[in-house]
């Protein structure tokens, strides 16, 4: 099983879409809310060089935004 972290905000539709995709494919993940979790926010910006959500960390591979082809490739779906 891949180790997956989703950095998201509760009001972000694309984050919802990413989580729906993972749920539909029965992939487990850790969801960090960067709106309230300051440490997670800093970690996300540092890891990804991005100031926007969603960001995913899949075993060290960073995926920016809702990128379905990339997710399928990394998760071998």
């Amino acid at each position: 099983m891949a180790n997956i972290t989703v950095y998201s905000t509760p009001t972000c539709p694309w984050c919802k879409k990413v989580k729906m995709f993972l749920d539909t494919n029965k992939v487990a993940y850790k969801d960090l809310n960067v709106a309230s979790d300051v440490a997670a926010r800093k970690e996300m910006v540092k890891k990804s060089g991005q100031m926007g959500v969603p960001v995913l960390d899949i075993d060290g591979h960073i995926v920016i935004g809702y990128d379905e082809p990339k997710l399928k490739e990394l998760l071998k779906i």
């Binding site: 905000t9 539709p13 984050c15 309230s36 926010r41 996300m44 910006v45 991005q50």
Partner: peptide, 17 residues
């Protein structure tokens, strides 16, 4: 884009707290 420029305030606003 994504490095400070955003087109989705409801998504990204909290990142700029």
């Amino acid at each position: 884009r994504g490095k400070g420029v955003s087109y989705c305030a409801i998504c990204d606003a909290p990142v700029f707290t």
